[in-house]
């Protein structure tokens, strides 16, 4: 900060004064719109022309998918910086906690190994979660029999992740695979960099031990469809685990400050850092639109999962939350 040129500092200051007010007032008017995810009262169907929301704008589902894809293409590179800005750097701590508590690769020492563990990291983007999973399983739990499939709708995010994975030990690289997949339909997926017109394959039913999605699910146009797919691909006893920005409603003052920060400052900084204000505006609004902890827990239960306790854990006063559910036997 201190090394910043006076010109840039001045630009930042004026930008924050003008832009922050504008974006805050212009978006707060739309805060009361109904949520864009279909609830269990209206069984979701996949209809590309169905209206959904892009941030606070109403668009069709297929349009949303394209626009989400372009958001992440435009921010793939500056993406880590964005996460730092939105969470004040907390996202690293949250991800560590998420992976450590899931404890992939743990297997009772007093019993025989139970065969390979398969983790599917959905919306895995640049591999942040997948790499932590491998470290926990292979290194900390001394269990090399754990593999991770990183999947994302956006090949450019995956490409960044694959690039980053070159720095991992060879055994960990070998345990990774990269898959282009829309979380709402895991029946037509394709390996990264395969022929876009080639045949697609399917993630089989009951083939996954652990399904993770971190900071991804709020971008899906049809969350119930994604939850149903998660339920389908998980083995009985398999775990669904989601880390997502959430609502710090228990701390009204903190929440107000955080909202003000995210609605005004982040898109503005996004513009300066990445030259792409709209993408960041979208990210901020998608967080605001995401259901509350309890509502999302209920959606998970509606998809057929069982939950323990109240079904979620708040992080940093609810700025983010972890939801977990188990696919029961039968």
């Amino acid at each position: 900060m201190a090394s910043r040129s006076p010109a840039l500092r001045r630009a930042l200051q004026t930008a924050s004064r003008t832009q922050s007010c504008r974006s805050f007032t212009s978006t707060s008017a739309t805060l009361t719109q109904p949520a864009d995810y279909p609830t269990r009262h209206q069984p979701p169907t996949r209809d590309p022309s169905r209206p959904t929301h892009f941030g606070f704008e109403t668009v069709t589902e297929s349009e949303k998918q394209q626009r989400v894809a372009s958001v992440f293409t435009s921010v793939a590179e500056s993406y880590d910086r964005m996460n730092d800005l939105m969470s004040f750097g907390w996202h690293r701590v949250w991800k560590d906690h998420f992976v450590r508590t899931l404890n992939p690769g743990f297997s009772p020492l007093s019993s025989s190994p139970s065969g390979p563990q398969h983790i599917l990291d959905i919306a895995g983007g640049t591999g942040d979660i997948a790499f932590r999973m491998l470290h926990q399983a292979h290194v900390l739990n001394h269990n090399p029999d754990v593999r991770v499939t990183v999947s994302d709708i956006n090949p450019s995010m995956l490409a960044v992740g694959k690039q980053r994975s070159q720095e991992l030990p060879a055994t960990q690289q070998a345990a990774l695979s990269w898959l282009e997949a829309n979380a709402e339909d895991l029946n037509s997926v394709r390996p990264l960099h395969s022929d876009p017109n080639g045949p697609t394959s399917s993630i089989p039913d009951a083939s996954v031990d652990l399904y993770t999605v971190a900071f991804g699910i709020r971008n899906f146009s049809n969350i119930p469809a994604a939850l149903r797919e998660a339920h389908r691909v998980l083995k009985p006893g398999g775990i669904f685990a989601c880390l997502e920005f959430s609502k710090a409603d228990n701390y009204p003052l903190f929440n107000a400050v955080y909202k003000r920060w995210s609605f005004s400052a982040i898109p503005m900084i996004g513009q300066l850092v990445a030259g792409d204000r709209d993408s960041y505006q979208y990210l901020v609004e998608s967080i605001e639109r995401f259901p509350s902890q309890e509502d999302f827990r209920d959606m998970i239960v509606d998809a057929g999962f069982v939950v323990g306790g109240r079904g979620y854990e708040n992080l940093t006063g609810g700025v983010a939350a972890i939801h977990r559910g188990m696919k029961p036997r039968n």
Partner: peptide, 16 residues
Amino acid sequence: ARDIGLLDISTNLLPN
């Protein structure tokens, strides 16, 4: 978890 036909990972059902 294994005794009742679940997986090693299934213990994540429990919050703590």
